[in-house]
Structure formats: C-alpha cells, structure tokens
C-alpha cells in the first residue's frame, strides 16, 4: 500500500515535471535569500520534526534558519512574523499563547503532523511484582497503597504533568474515583528523572506520560488499561464507572499539529504548501530519538539519513507543492 502510494506520487511528479516551466513565479520566490525561521523547542522529538522540515525546505531551495524558542513564548514571536513556523504542537498542552494568537488570526493551525501520539498513565514494569493484577485499572485501584508516598497516604501517588500543562491524569482519575492523589511534576526533565530514579531504586511510580518519547524506547514501561476514551465517555455522564461524570475513562486521542505565521502563505506559498503536506511517522521519530538521545548520534546526520532514505517521496512532494 505504502509502495503504491509512493509510486503514484512519483508518477505525479513526472507529470508535473513536464509542466515545470509554468511555475516560474515560484522559482522567483525561491530565489529569496531571506530565511524561513523554524522554531526549535525543548524536546528531542520536536528537534527531529523541525530539522526534517528544515531539510525538506532546503531541498526545495529555501534558506532556513532553525531558531531555538520556548514552547510558550514562540507564539509571541510567530504572531509578529519574527518566527515563521512551529511544527509539533500538542493539543493536550497547547500553550495559552497559541490560543490567543490563533484567535487573533495571527497564527494558523495548518493541519496535523499525523504523528500518532498516545497519552495515558504508565508505570515501570517492576511494579507488576508489587501489584500483579496490572495493567488492569481495577487491580491498580485495589493496590493504590503500593503507590503511596508520605504526602498522599493512604492514597496512591499519581505523578501528573507540570501544572502549567494542565492536569489530565488528575482529571481522569478523579472522574473515575480512583484512590490516588495527583502531584504535579515541575517539568519534563523532572518526570523523566523520576522514572529513571524509580527504575534504579525499584521504587513505586505511576505517572501521566506520552508517546512518542525517547524514554519509552529506553526504559520498560506499561500503560494502565483504562476504559477506552471514546466520544461517548467524554460527552455522556452516564457512560462508564462514574454515572455522574464525563471523562471517566482513558485519554482521548491527542492531535499533534503544525502552526505557521499568518503571513506565511503570501510570502512563501510553496514552502507553505510543503509544510501543510509534511507528516512524520511516530515509529520513525521514536527510532531517530533513540539514535540521538540513546546512542548519542549527531542530529544532523540522523536527519540526513532519513532524508536520503525518503528522497524520492520528498522530491515528489516538492514538485507537487511547486505545481500548486
């Protein structure tokens, strides 16, 4: 199926190649030496997403600047046109600055990255010895005291996202009436450090986490099997264990999307098209993360390898964008 798609895009590229002369306007635009600025945030997955997008734009003839930018503050810059795109925004923790800039029409959601993400509650596998019924959520609830810490006794401790990302784990568990008290983590680094310490000490841990993430490639963890996070669960209170609450189930699927400065389409129409078409596979991203973070390889080389092995599909995408 995948090959078939590749074939068809190559054919399309051939056809388009025949009429390339038509798109001289975009060739002119390509000549612009003013660089497109892509935001590089704080985590490795996003670095890869952005480096690959940058490499694609460069292959199409653009000059690209990768600019480090905080996940929240970047939208102030994008609203002003100082930054032009940020390509991995998670709905689950989209910053308030995005909502504001998007409402003002200064920043645009240009579509999903199709990076298949999952959020949920997980534990390091050694917890199965302490609580043999895992991953079932009923079993988890029954041995909540095995997950307790002094601040949460007699309840178990659920390490949730940093407070400023929202508290999805707490919301799920409260709706389900679980015997857990949630504690917000301060940062992503703090979450990972807890995971690592828990594995080193064989100490209890239950935390809200997400995938793709390099730590899941490096450490053995398991998701708690919660009731499926369906639409009914989130709209109908009578659904699920708690008859009076919505959201008494697993996380609803997370969407990851790409954003650009509102003026992008006018200034660089082809680049805008390319970014709209750009998608990344979660498996690919996680493998590359393991290469960068696990094996310490240089991110530029890892990305170059990815671009080489997907060269024909990318070239097809570029010629398609130029023809639009």
């Amino acid at each position: 199926m995948k090959d078939l798609r590749k074939l068809s895009s190559v054919l399309a590229a051939g056809l388009i190649g025949g009429v390339m002369t038509v798109s001289s306007a975009s060739a002119l635009e390509m000549g612009s030496s003013y660089p497109i600025k892509l935001a590089v945030n704080e985590w490795t997955g996003q670095h890869l997403t952005t480096h690959i997008a940058g490499a694609i734009l460069e292959r199409a003839g653009y000059s690209v600047d990768l600019v480090t930018a905080g996940y929240g503050p970047q939208f102030i810059a994008m609203a002003e046109g100082d930054l032009h795109a940020s390509l991995e925004i998670w709905t689950s923790n989209a910053p308030g600055q995005f909502t504001e800039a998007a409402a003002a029409g200064k920043v645009i959601d240009i579509g999903g990255l199709e990076l298949e993400a999952r959020e949920g509650v997980l534990y390091p596998v050694h917890m199965k010895e302490m609580c043999p019924g895992l991953p079932s959520w009923e079993a988890l609830n029954a041995c909540a005291d095995k997950f307790a810490s002094v601040e949460t006794l007699p309840n178990g401790r659920l390490l949730d996202y940093p407070a400023d990302w929202g508290s999805p784990g707490k919301d799920r568990f409260e709706a389900m009436g679980m015997n857990f008290t949630s504690v917000p983590a301060g940062s992503e680094g703090a979450l990972i450090t807890e995971l690592e310490a828990s594995i080193a000490k064989k100490s209890p841990l239950l935390m809200t986490f997400w995938q793709p993430h390099w730590a899941l490639a490096e450490y053995e963890t398991e998701w708690v099997a919660l009731p499926a996070g369906t639409d009914e669960c989130y709209s109908d209170p009578s659904w699920g264990v708690n008859k009076n609450a919505t959201g008494d189930c697993d996380f609803s699927p997370t969407r990851i999307f790409k954003t650009t400065w509102a003026g992008m389409g006018d200034k660089w129409p082809v680049a805008d098209q390319l970014l709209k078409m750009y998608t990344l596979d979660a498996g690919d991203q996680q493998n590359m993360m393991a290469a960068v973070d696990g094996r310490g390889e240089d991110i530029k080389e890892v990305v170059a390898k990815y671009i080489d092995s997907n060269a024909s599909a990318i070239d097809a995408m570029i010629s398609k964008a130029k023809s639009m």
């Binding site: 935001a39 590089v40 945030n41 704080e42 985590w43 490795t44 600019v67 480090t68 930018a69 905080g70 503050p73 970047q74 810059a77 940062s187 992503e188 680094g189 703090a190 979450l191 990972i192 450090t193 995971l195 690592e196 310490a197 730590a215 490096e218 973070d293």
Partner: peptide
C-alpha cells in the same frame, strides 16, 4: 535562555536538564 531565540550555552543547559538524570 528559557525564551530561546539565541543558541547560547544557557539553552544547552536547559535542554540537557529537560532530559532527566540520564543527561
């Protein structure tokens, strides 16, 4: 460095800090 915008050594520390005790 928390706002980014410049590839300086503070940013390097911040990003490494984000990767937990393994870094």
């Amino acid at each position: 460095a928390v706002i980014g915008g410049f590839d300086d050594i503070g940013r390097e520390v911040l990003v490494a800090t984000n990767k937990g005790s393994a870094r």
